[in-house]
Structure formats: structure tokens, C-alpha cells
Design a binder for these strands. Structure first.
Length: 940
RNA sequence: GGGCUCUUAGCUCAGUUGGUUAGAGCAUCGUGUUGAUAACGCGGGGGUCGGUGGUUCGAGUCCACUAGGGCCCA
């Protein structure tokens, strides 16, 4: 019979599954979205809306996606889904970046491993393109699996001919402005391979070098300045690369380190960093050492020393990178042979001097001693010093400037191909001058127009813009956009804006491979050459490619400015904080130089994924597993919800524990939706809805709470603070407002009342509104689940007629606001939790009651008491609101404070509603039930 | 070494212009329910706010120093 009675209840009915089973279900929804052309439908719906352009920073296509990609793309997708629902015309063109060393390196390795050594640049490029394409497809599939909705058919790609052409046009613009110049800069150079190497192509191995202490005689003026009477006064340097001595142009000292002038028996007076005195004395076996003076490094600035064997000055300069870890604290500086040296040289106007040819042999430039000309710096192996090293040693030993020498074993860079030690060697490079036309000042100025989220992003990019030297844009690489420069037999370079534009037109149809397929004459065929150029048949194509930051940094010109449905500048760029120095900056420069303004109005940055303990993720960490494994474990919605529950402005910690935590919140969320859908199964708005002003107080309260939620959540979305939207607002709303309060109270009403009972319909009206609004509020965060719930609410099956992404963002209906009722209900519920629940819990522990309906409350109070008055006002609703069987209020002038008593309810328990009532009434079919149930049963 | 930045319960986050016993969700422990049931309710325990020192009648909330993370440079 009990079973029969249960059948008379209006229990929730829905097919919406309690368990998400996202891993299986989500891919079906993706297919559904594709089938209905969701992205296109969204664009069509909003075509007249206000424009909002989020410009996608292109990921590099060289591997599977990881959580970092998911963080970035989820934030973008969440923003766009919100904007789309809010009616913005916001096309989303995803991008891909593919030129560059990581791919070229991997592909070259593969070619070598297959035993090939004779491959041509063109072959490498084709293999790179194939490799890049493979991962472009893999990545786009993985992004789609994450739920990223975009115009995949019209993606942009840095290796597309039209993109390359636009990039070359941008470069032509630079050239036209006269800011592209040629200058030397040191690069790693492999002598056997006759090629420049990138950091990634270098292997550090132990190597035995000859370390030498060499003295550089001070000029007379310097001695006078330092008050050193000894004519044989020198500054002492230490180096492990004797062969770089011919290129020595300076000695660097640290401005804040103390230096000592020491008198020695055999080598005159020497200047050495004071902290290194002991070790130098020891290493050089100096005798009779006596300190005659001390100076601060800064006092030595600009004083002149003389090169040990070439007749020229070697001034003493200041450099912050000088340390006292080894050597003498006085650093041999050859701007053509080291990056630090180079910077010191540039800062002090020194030449970037490098008297080595491509084969690593000294050239005859009138400065290199005749004995050295032609000697090679390459070491032939077996630990034998190079000819150049021996030659230099011979000279300095001969003229007395060599104080000591010793073999040392240390880690030294080697070529990954030839396995020989590499040399650092200055080569001609192309640069873009950043100050010549005032572009740096303009860039800094343009940042004033940009809104930074978070605000400190501005300081970061500003510092980067202020401090970066002129932009070296040439790379000695194959897999990139070629620098359209030509060279004559003597190495003279020719570059011209109009020529580049003409080449760009050819590139637009055939891609930059033409640079590697054709001769200069063929490329220049049909192009008008400037008057001062040699004829095309006398020219050769350069082999340098453009820095890949020019590639992605040109995207605003190649994409935003070229596509009719986009606009420049973008409303938003959104990338990781490393891009302050990367894409944000390269884009800023190209934009400021070519278009005189920043390419973005808003700049949003997020942090990096780290381990739960806050330290960086390494490849071997489980949390570093590929994105598709995470999704296979949890489903995209959980991963997305996890991302959106994090404050992305700082580091974003991840672990299975953290994601599981979110999965728990998700479960609560999902079941709440299920409860609502299930309780609306017999509700037809047109037929059953109750006018809002006639809603029951509790329902009014619920709508009032909803109104506040919509306002706050919308604010949070507008500020891109999704973690607030979720954790501060949505999650507590689900757990507290709905699950623990509203839904819990409503069960009795919804289940036991007659289906058409006005109170039941009142609540269904409210639930209907709440569901409709709430599901839309979470749609950008959990697009799969929201769409699924939306479908089940429509037709109780997986796919409904309308995708939730095509609905409008909810706005507050002012009739939901009812502050007074809401504040009453809130106070009453608070009374329950602070005054009654612990008492009820005590009864439960004593086994006096089980569920709260087994209990009653008796509250005695003074009618002057505000709280008691409020209870009195809602007397008829209290039992329901507290989920008790009975609440009696007793007025008494005797009491000053409320007196509260809870006890087991009186009477008999209604087998249908489980409420305790004074007596049951007999029904024909269902036996004895409470009077209210008997009434409800009449309509069953 | 430099620039920017982060540090509140086991986890993720809130904490307005400095002001009563520092909040939430999840987790945990106990418990009720078996009509949201691999679901839901109720109750309990758990932080003194990275550390130190200041300013103040009073600081998680302002200042200085310091420790430990992160990104980017060197």
C-alpha cells in the first residue's frame, strides 16, 4: 500500500541523467553543434550587434595540447560565449603559428637520423610544413574537443601565402621608413657546418681549454690618474679562449667591486679584484705581493689599457655582469665574440670587431698580426689546442704579457651536428631601429590608451619596451619567411620597399618557397629595380629569414586589417604573462611602426599552470600530461569549470585533487539542474504559470535572490572574473540558496500537493524562471552541460530545438525584486539555522527524531520583540519553511527573550506526506492520510 | 643579480575606504534520510591571515625588512 501511495506523489520526472558521463556524451554534442552550424548561426544572429574582436594569439603547432593551452583557449571561449549571448557581433578567427626553430630542429633531426645529409633548404621547408600541418590538425581537433567554438574554416596561419605576403608588406613598410639597417652581432657558429646555430642546437659538453692570465699595460695617463708610479703597471685579465685576444677591445670591471693594485716581483704592478687577490696570487705564483692602492671599479672607468700585442687602446669599462667567482674580476672584452661583450661594446660605442672568416680563420685586416693570419680557431680533436690558440700563446709568451697558463676542464657549447666546440662570432645581421623615428616613444605613449587586466601588466610591458635594444630581425634559419634582401658578389646588400612589395605579390600566390626555388633574376623578373642596383643577374638571394616574432607580431595587419568581418585595433588580446615580452610586444612594435598605434584596446594576461605546491610543472609530472588525457579522465566541462574557478591572474595550480574538488561542485550543480527539470515535467508556462505578483513569499524570495545573482554574475563576466562568477556566486547559490534551502523546502509542496495546487504552481513558476535564467548564466562556463540541460528542459532528450548558445543573456525582470519579502525569508531561514537546527540535531542524536518532519517547535516570545513579530507574520508558513510538522507561537509578556523548545511532533504520521498531524482521515482507495493529502488525492 | 607578481582553513577562493568571536564551497568526521538515492539534509572539527619589526586606541587590510613560489630578463 505504501508503494501505491508513493505513486500518488508528483515526484520529479526526467531523463536528464544524474551522472554526467561527459567523456562519452560531449563528443556527440560537438557533432550536433557542427551539424546545426552553431558558430554560423551565432554569427548570423548577432550580425547587427555591437562589434567585439578578440584576436587569437596563435599557438605554435609542434605537439599535443597541454593544460596551458586549455587555460588560454577556455578563457577566450568563455568570454566569447558570454559576448555572443549578450548580442555582440564577435567573430572568432583562430590562428596558428608554425615557422621557427622548434619545428625546423625536430625535422632536421629526423632527416639526419634517416641518414640524410644532402637535403636542401627547400626539402627541409616542405618537411617542416608537413610537420606543422599535422599538428595544426591535431591541435584544432583537441581544441574542439574542449568545446572551443570558432570559425575553424577561416583560421589564419602564419605560413599561408597570403599571410606571408602581408608580413612582407609590413616589412616593406619598415624598410620604407628607413629604420632597417645592417650591423654585426655575435652568434654561435659551427665551423665544420659553416652555419649559425641557435641555443637549441647546442649541446654542452666537458671540454679542456687553456686558461690564461694576461696583463694589459696601462697608459701613462691612466697611471697618473691612479697614482701608480711603476711604469710596468697593468690590469690583469683571465680568459679560457686565447684565440679571442686579437679581438679584445676593452676590459670590463664591476663598478661596485673593490680592486687592488699590487706590486709583484716579476710582473710589475697588477690590478686585480680584491676578493680574488689570494686565488690570483696562488694561480699566477706571484711573489713578494704588496698592495699599493685600492680603487672602486667605478674609479677605473674609461681609463686606458693597451692591447697586449696590437697597437691599440683597450679601455676599462663598467659592466654589471662581472663577478668575482673566478679569474681576476677584470674581464677580457671582445664585442665580436660574446653576447655580454657585445652589449658592453654597444653601450660604449665600440666596434663589433670579429677578424674571423666563415672557416674560422683569422683574416688579414691590417690589425691581426701577420703571424696569426690564416690560422684556424677550430680544434681538431685529441685535446690538441687550435693553431690560433698556439699562435696567440706564442706571441704573449714572447712579449711577457702572459703571466700564467693552465688547462681547465669546463662545460662548453658544442655543435649538435659536428660535435665540435662552437665559437661565438659576430656576423652581419638585419636590425630595426626603434628610436630613429621615435617609435619607442610612440610605443610607450600608445600604451596609455590600453586597458590592462590586471593593471600591473602595463608596468611589465613598459619595462620591456623601454629596455629592449634595437630589434635584431634576421635569423640564419631555413624555416621562416625569407628576408627579401639581395647581395652582389662583394657581399653588398640591397633592400628596397617597392621591390619587397612586388615580391610580396608573387608570394601571395605561390608562397615564400619561391625564394628557395628561383634565382634572384627569376624572382626579380618583371620587377622594376631601383636605379642604384646592379642588374638582377648580378644578384643573389640572401639566405636569412625573419625573426618569427615578426610572423606572429604581424597578425593584426595580416588578419585584422585584411578580413572584412574583423577590425583593427582589436578589442582584446588575451595570452599568458610571458607574452608581455613576446607577442604583446612584437605586435605592439609592428603596429606602432606601421600604423602608429597599439593593435589592442584591452590586454588581458593569465598566469602559468603550476603544481599544487606552487612550483613549476616539469614534463615528468603527472599533471603535465596532455590535455586529451585530462579530458578523457574528467570531461571537458570539468576541465573548463576548473579553469574558470581559478584566479588566472596569478599562477594556476593543478592536481587531480584540485580537479576532483571541482568535479564535486559540478555534481552538485548538475543534480540541481536535474531536480529543476524533473519538477517541471508537468508544468506548461502558458497554462500553469502564476502571475508573479501572486507568488508565494518563498518563491518571491527565490526570484529576488536570482535577480541579485544575475546582476553580480553579469558584473563578474564583464570584468572577466570567472572565478568570482563561479566560486563566489554560482557555487554558493547552488549549494545554499537552491539545494539546502529552496529545493529542500519545496519538496513537500511539489510532491504532496495536488498537481494544480496554486502553491505548487507558484513554485513551479519560480523554478521555471530560475532554471531558464540560471542555465544561461552557467552556459559560458559549462557549455556542454548547460546545452544538455536546456535540451532536456525542452523535450526531455539529448538534443532540443534550440541550442542554449543561441539564447540571449538573461536580464533581470524588475518584478523579481522584492527586498522586503526576501529580507523576511532570509531572516526566518537564518533563525532556523542559528536557533533551531542545533536543537533539532540534539534530538536526532538522542534518536528522538529522524527527519526534521518528526519534530515540532514551540516558540514563546514577547509581541514587542521584532523577531517574534516576524515569526508571527509568517506563522502559517513556518512549519513548511522550517520543514517541521508543527510550529506554535505563544505570546507572553513575561519573557524578554525568545524561548525555544523543540520536541517530537504530536499526533500521527501521515504515510503519504510524512508530516505529523492530529489525526488521519480515511480515503476510499488509499487508506488513512492527512486531511491535506486526502484533499490532494481527490484530483489524482 | 634585475623587472613584474603571488603567499588567508587539507584544496580552491571571498574578505569594501584598517574596527565586534576572519567567511564560502569542496574535502574530513559524526549523523539523518532512502520520495533529487553513486543524490539530498543537519551538526562538528579545522586558519590568527608566509615570517619579523613598525605605524595606530585598533591591521589579514598601511609601511619596512625577510622567506618561499611564478613569469620575463641578465
Amino acid at each position: 500500500m505504501a508503494q501505491d501511495l508513493k505513486d500518488t506523489l508528483n515526484l520529479p520526472q526526467t531523463n536528464f541523467p544524474m551522472r554526467g558521463n561527459l567523456v562519452e556524451r560531449e563528443p556527440k554534442r560537438i557533432n550536433h553543434w557542427k551539424k546545426i552550424g552553431l558558430y554560423d548561426q551565432i554569427q548570423a544572429k548577432n550580425s547587427e550587434g555591437e562589434s567585439f574582436i578578440l584576436h587569437d594569439g596563435p599557438p605554435f603547432t609542434n605537439g599535443d595540447l597541454h593544460l596551458g593551452h586549455a587555460l588560454n583557449k577556455t578563457l577566450k571561449d568563455t568570454i566569447l560565449r558570454y559576448k555572443w549571448m549578450a548580442g555582440y557581433n564577435a567573430p572568432y578567427i583562430p590562428g596558428w603559428d608554425s615557422h621557427g626553430l622548434p619545428i625546423e630542429h625536430k625535422v632536421s633531426r629526423e632527416l639526419q637520423d634517416s641518414g640524410r645529409t644532402d637535403y636542401t633548404p627547400l626539402e627541409v621547408r616542405k618537411a617542416c610544413a608537413k610537420f606543422a600541418d599535422k599538428y595544426r590538425l591535431i591541435q584544432s581537433e583537441q581544441f574542439e574537443r574542449l568545446g572551443v567554438t570558432a570559425d575553424w574554416a577561416n583560421e589564419y596561419w602564419t605560413i599561408h601565402p597570403e599571410y606571408e605576403a602581408a608580413e612582407l608588406e609590413t616589412f616593406a613598410n619598415f624598410v620604407e621608413q628607413g629604420i632597417v639597417y645592417r650591423s654585426k652581432k655575435p652568434v654561435y657558429w659551427s665551423i665544420p657546418c659553416a652555419t649559425a646555430l641557435a641555443e637549441a642546437e647546442i649541446e654542452y659538453k666537458d671540454h679542456t681549454s687553456i686558461s690564461i692570465f694576461v696583463k694589459l699595460r696601462l697608459s701613462e695617463a691612466a697611471r697618473t690618474q691612479l697614482d701608480l708610479p711603476d711604469e710596468d703597471s697593468s690590469i690583469l685579465i683571465w680568459t679560457t679562449t686565447p684565440w679571442t685576444l686579437p679581438a679584445n677591445l676593452a676590459v670590463s670591471v664591476h663598478p661596485n667591486i673593490e680592486y687592488s693594485a699590487i706590486k709583484t716581483q716579476a710582473h710589475g704592478t697588477l690590478i686585480v679584484a680584491t676578493p680574488l687577490l689570494d686565488s690570483v696570487t696562488n694561480e699566477c705564483k706571484l711573489e713578494g705581493v704588496e698592495t699599493v692602492a685600492t680603487y672602486l671599479g667605478s674609479q677605473l672607468e674609461k681609463l686606458e689599457a693597451r692591447h697586449p700585442f696590437i697597437d691599440r687602446a683597450s679601455p676599462i669599462l663598467l659592466a654589471e655582469y662581472v663577478t668575482t667567482e673566478s679569474g681576476t674580476g677584470c674581464v677580457h672584452t671582445a664585442p665580436g665574440h660574446g653576447l655580454d661583450d657585445y652589449i658592453t661594446g654597444i653601450n660604449n660605442g665600440l666596434e663589433v670587431y670579429c677578424p674571423l672568416d666563415d672557416k674560422g680563420c683569422y683574416v688579414d685586416d691590417g690589425q691581426v698580426p701577420a703571424d696569426l693570419v690564416g690560422l684556424s680557431v677550430l680544434e681538431t680533436g685529441n685535446g690538441k689546442p687550435s693553431d690560433a690558440n698556439l699562435g696567440v700563446l706564442k706571441i704573449i709568451a714572447g712579449n711577457g704579457s702572459l703571466i700564467a697558463k693552465k688547462k681547465i676542464k669546463h662545460s662548453y657549447p658544442h655543435c649538435w651536428r659536428s660535435k665540435t666546440p662552437v665559437v661565438f662570432r659576430a656576423m652581419d645581421q638585419w636590425f630595426v631601429a626603434l628610436d630613429k623615428n621615435g617609435d619607442r616613444a610612440r610605443a610607450l605613449e600608445s600604451l596609455n590608451q590600453v586597458n590592462f587586466i590586471p593593471s600591473w601588466g602595463e608596468n611589465r610591458i613598459r619595462a620591456a619596451v623601454e629596455n629592449r635594444p634595437d630589434w635584431c630581425i634576421s635569423r640564419q634559419r631555413t624555416w621562416g619567411v625569407p628576408i627579401p634582401a639581395f647581395y652582389d658578389e662583394d657581399g653588398g646588400a640591397y633592400i628596397d620597399a617597392d621591390v619587397i612589395r612586388a615580391i610580396s605579390k608573387k608570394v601571395a600566390s605561390s608562397g615564400t618557397n619561391l625564394w628557395f626555388e628561383q634565382t634572384a633574376a627569376e624572382i626579380l623578373d618583371g620587377i622594376q629595380l631601383p636605379a642604384d642596383w646592379p642588374s638582377a643577374d648580378k644578384l643573389k638571394c640572401g639566405t636569412d629569414t625573419l625573426d618569427v616574432w615578426i610572423d606572429s607580431g604581424s597578425s593584426h595587419r595580416a588578419v585584422l586589417q585584411k578580413r572584412p568581418n574583423l577590425k583593427w585595433p582589436a578589442d582584446l588580446y588575451l595570452e599568458g604573462s610571458d607574452q608581455h615580452r613576446g607577442w604583446f610586444q612584437s605586435s605592439l612594435w609592428t603596429s606602432v611602426i606601421a600604423d602608429k598605434a597599439a593593435p589592442y584596446k584591452n590586454l588581458l594576461t593569465h598566469g602559468f599552470i603550476v603544481k599544487e605546491d606552487g612550483t613549476k610543472l616539469s614534463k615528468s609530472d603527472g599533471a603535465a600530461r596532455p590535455l586529451n588525457e585530462w579530458i578523457a579522465g574528467y570531461g571537458a566541462d570539468i576541465i573548463r569549470l576548473w579553469i574558470c574557478s581559478q584566479d588566472y591572474r596569478g599562477d594556476v595550480p593543478v592536481s587531480d585533487k584540485i580537479v576532483k574538488n571541482v568535479a564535486n561542485n559540478y555534481r552538485n550543480l548538475r543534480n540541481t539542474l536535474r531536480f529543476q527539470i524533473g519538477n517541471l515535467h508537468d508544468f506548461d508556462v502558458a497554462r500553469d504559470a502564476v502571475p508573479l505578483d501572486q507568488l508565494n513569499a518563498l518563491d518571491k524570495w527565490a526570484l529576488n535572490e536570482l535577480a541579485q545573482l544575475v546582476r553580480k554574475v553579469t558584473e563578474a563576466y564583464d570584468a572577466y572574473e570567472f572565478h568570482r562568477a563561479f566560486k563566489d556566486l554560482i557555487d554558493p547559490f547552488v549549494a545554499n540558496t537552491l539545494s539546502a534551502t529552496y529545493h529542500d523546502v519545496l519538496k513537500d509542496r511539489l510532491y504532496t500537493r495536488s498537481p494544480n495546487d496554486p502553491l505548487r504552481r507558484s513554485s513551479q513558476t519560480a523554478i521555471h524562471i530560475i532554471f531558464s535564467v540560471f542555465t544561461r548564466l552557467i552556459a559560458p562556463l559549462v557549455p556542454f552541460t548547460a546545452d544538455e540541460a536546456w535540451s532536456y528542459a525542452q523535450n526531455d532528450s539529448d538534443f532540443g530545438d534550440q541550442a542554449i548558445a543561441l539564447t540571449d543573456w538573461p536580464v533581470v525582470d524588475s518584478t523579481w525584486d522584492d527586498a522586503e519579502t526576501a529580507s523576511d525569508i532570509r531572516a526566518l531561514r537564518s533563525f532556523l539555522s542559528t536557533q533551531l537546527n542545533d536543537r533539532l540535531e540534539a534530538l536526532r542524536q538522542q534518536k528522538t527524531i529522524g527527519q526534521s518532519l518528526d519534530a515540532k517547535a514551540i516558540i514563546t516570545g514577547n509581541s514587542n520583540d521584532a523577531e517574534f513579530a516576524r515569526l508571527k507574520k509568517y506563522e502559517a508558513d513556518l512549519a513548511e519553511l522550517f520543514i517541521l510538522s508543527e510550529v506554535s507561537l505563544i505570546e507572553s509578556q513575561e519573557v524578554s527573550e525568545l524561548e525555544i523548545e523543540v520536541a517530537h511532533a504530536d499526533g500521527v504520521r501521515c504515510p503519504r506526506s510524512w508530516r505529523w498531524v492530529p489525526e488521519l482521515v480515511e480515503t476510499e482507495r488509499w487508506g488513512a492520510v492527512s486531511a491535506r493529502c486526502a484533499e490532494a488525492l481527490k484530483s489524482i
